[in-house]
Structures are given as C-alpha cells and as structure tokens.
C-alpha cells in the first residue's frame, strides 16, 4: 500500500507525454476511488498536451480532499509513462513514495535536433535518490498485444497492487469504459491489465 492509514489523503501523480493516455489513466484511478467511496479531485495540466508536451495529472482521494494540487514532496505514487519524465517528477514523491515507470525512453524532437542530450540511465538516477522504483517495458507489452495505446491499461494493472482498493475494482472500471465506448477492445484491455498486474507484483 502506498498510503498509510494515518494520512487522510492519498496522492497519485501520473506523468507522461501528450498522446500516451495519461488523462485516461488518471480518470480510471479517480473513478475507482469514487467507487470505493472516497472524495476525489483530479487535476490535469492539459492545454497543449495533445501536442507531444509534458502531461501531468494529479489524483487525490480520501475522506475529504481540499486543494486539487498535490503539494510538492507529498505524492505517494508516481506513475510515469516515460523514464526521463519519471526523473523530472520524482522529487514530488514523499521519501517513502513509490515510482512505477514504463522503462521505454521516448526522446523529444529537441534531442533529435541535437540541442539536448537524453539523460543517462534515468531510472538509476531515481534509485540513487533513495526512491523505490518499479520499472518495466510497459510499452513493449502493449505493442506485443498489438496496440501501443494499451500502455495505460498495462500501467494501471501494474499499480493496482499498490492501491488500497482491490485490483478487481479498477479492472472493472476499465472494462466498463470499453464496453460502453469500444466493445471490440475489451478483451485486449483485459489482457493488458493482467500483464501489468503480473509485472506490478514483481
């Protein structure tokens, strides 16, 4: 569990790049927390997000949530869809917080133009700060299942053991979304969630 019972609010910071499904992932976490009976706030810095920029979404749940923004240094769980973004945001975690990271790097165009370097071993750098990191190639699993867009369901499966509600509730929230909108994708998402859950346990 990423939250201890003496704290009233659980803070989850989801980060990634526009187009990776960060907003959908945070929406699923929020809906799951609502279903579990919590007060929830979810904020998103969207704006130009669909254009390859950094996307962050704050999800806070508990008995009563006040500010929608996670105070710096108080995130319980960092869900990062890209390792350099995990490094960028890892300072938002509590000392005992956990980072769940898709280990597949995605360099922005400014790196291709030769203006910046991609950081050396971002995951190692996060570990050096004493943070517990679980990193795995979620993107690869998604592509092997046939669609890179499944990466957010894989990541959700991976974090589900770290949340205080059962993985089954989150799985149901995800599958319901697809039953309503894209029934053809229900089975694929079921597989993606299961694959993530397996990696999350490890």
């Amino acid at each position: 569990m990423v939250n201890s019972s003496n704290r009233q609010v659980t803070n989850i910071l989801v980060v990634g790049i526009g187009g990776q499904g960060v907003m959908t992932a945070s929406e699923v976490i929020a809906q799951t927390a609502l279903r579990a009976g919590y007060d929830v706030k979810k904020t998103e810095v969207a704006g130009m997000a669909q254009r390859g920029g950094v996307v962050t979404s704050h999800v806070r749940f508990g008995k009563r949530v006040l500010s929608p923004a996670i105070p710096s240094g108080e995130a319980d769980l960092l869900v990062a869809f890209e390792p350099a973004e995990a490094l960028r945001w890892c300072g938002e975690l509590r000392p005992e917080g956990v980072a769940m990271v898709n280990s597949e790097p995605q360099a922005p165009p400014v790196v291709s133009f030769g203006l910046y370097d991609y950081p050396e071993d971002p995951i190692g750098q996060i570990r050096e700060r004493g943070i517990t990191v679980h990193a795995f190639a979620a993107g690869k699993i998604a592509r092997e299942l046939g669609n890179f867009r499944l990466v957010n369901t894989v990541m959700l499966g991976a974090i589900s053991p770290y949340l205080e509600f059962s993985a089954e509730v989150m799985r149901e929230v995800i599958l319901e979304r697809f039953r309503e909108r894209k029934p053809k994708l229900v089975e694929l998402n079921e597989a993606a969630f299961a694959a993530g859950l397996e990696r999350g346990h490890g």
Binding site: G52, A69, L87, R88, W89, G91, E92, A107, P108, P119
Partner: peptide, 26 residues
C-alpha cells in the same frame, strides 16, 4: 521537485538538487 513545478514557484529560489533535463515543449 527536480525541475517540475517551476511554474508554480516563480519568484522563489530553486530548491534541492536539480537534474538537468531537456525541456519537452509541445
């Protein structure tokens, strides 16, 4: 954080160690 919440810390000094990361503009 590292250099994450800069936009919310205008007028305040940078805090903590800062990993020099590329920007990721839209």
């Amino acid at each position: 954080g590292v250099n994450a919440m800069q936009e919310q810390r205008v007028d305040l000094p940078k805090i903590g160690s800062s990993a020099e990361l590329f920007p990721r503009p839209p």
